[in-house]
Amino acid sequence: MICKGGANGRLSILIFHQVLPEPDPFRPEALDAETFHWQIALLAEHFNLLSLPEAMERLSQGTLPPKAVCVTFDDGYADNANVALPILLKHRVPATFFISTGYLDGGRMWHDTVIEAMRLMETDLLDLSDSLGQRFLTGSIHEKRRSTRRLIALLKNLDPSDRDALIQRIIEPVSSGLPTDLMMTSNQVRRLQKSGMVLGCHTVSHPIFTTVGIETVRQEIQQGRAELQSLLDESVTLFAYPNGRPFDDYQAEHVRLVRDLGFEAAFSTAGGVATRNADRWQLPRFSPWDRIPSRFMARLLLNAVNAASTRVPLS
């Protein structure tokens, strides 16, 4: 089924986030350079890799090649430019990078702040029983990893202002040691552009749309696009929803807003493949997370079987 092209073509859109130089025990879900290299090599050998703008045009025209695949990255991590870009260029693979502009030039996403704070923690216990009703072991690496996962899951459900206030309390003992180079600089974003890569909007501060008001969402999208367009001196026409799960992270009103703001296409994290009649403002993407080549290829084939993208009713 993945071999179809033309009017019945199916487009697989892959999501990546970080590509680390070496594996990191505090970020076990992040790809390392060696793994990403063989994944891109397999994609380049067995699939037709398109830039996202070309794929969108050919999808609407019904002229997709068989085995069509696009590569995308979310958030704007510095390793995208330092580690992933050389691998992409080596294999002549185009990619689109969705950037949250508020973290450029020294910023940090909130969950990265938690991860790095836990890495630096020198005590054996983080006591948050007065705020979260829990205590977290922080003695060994394994304890820190388990506690980090639990803590992020709990913080994710808080109001952003309450979450950020609690994070400031957590990091106070280690704040001076936290990294300021996790996200791209403006020059690295321009380097991606000069290398032929496509840049898309991912808001300013990556809010989950269902946790904030619609006017905040509008401001985040408009400001993020304006900042990126100013940086690149070109139009930004593609958008990716933060977190990107339909209903949970964004809803119908947000889809309408993105469409009304004039984006040519927008992307979710619902699994499946894009077809010619898919909703152009919530196209599906998925992460091929397997670390064994045979399973990586099998997951691509399995995902392609799910031809229907998930839609939020636009009513």
Rank of each mutant, 00 (worst) to 15 (best):
P23V: 10
E227L: 09
D162T: 09
D260Q: 14
D233Y: 01
P284D: 04
I171S: 00
R10M: 10
N80T: 12
A95S: 10
E54M: 08
P94M: 03
E45G: 09
D127T: 01
T72F: 02
P53V: 08
E215K: 06
G262W: 01
A308W: 03
D124R: 00
V71S: 05
V114C: 05
A165H: 12
A117Q: 00
L283F: 02
R108V: 11
F136Q: 00
L59H: 03
T35G: 07
M109R: 15
E22T: 13
I40V: 15
G177F: 04
T180N: 13
T72W: 03
D290S: 15
F97H: 10
L11E: 01
D127E: 04
T63F: 11
P284E: 03
R280C: 02
I152Q: 07
M118N: 08
I221A: 03
A252M: 05
I152S: 07
P246R: 06
C3E: 12
T35C: 14
M197V: 04
G196Y: 05
A304W: 01
G177H: 05
H91T: 12
F247E: 13
N82Y: 09
H254S: 07
G133S: 13
L52R: 09
L182V: 14
D112Q: 05
E29A: 15
S186N: 09
L238A: 08
R259N: 03
L199H: 02
L228V: 06
T180K: 13
D162H: 11
E29Y: 15
R145V: 03
M56V: 12
P173H: 01
P86F: 10
N157Q: 14
S268V: 05
L302W: 06
H142N: 12
P284F: 00
V312E: 05
V273L: 00
D32L: 10
L20M: 13
H206N: 09
T211K: 14
P284K: 02
L64F: 06
R119T: 01
T35S: 12
L50F: 01
L59W: 01
L128D: 00
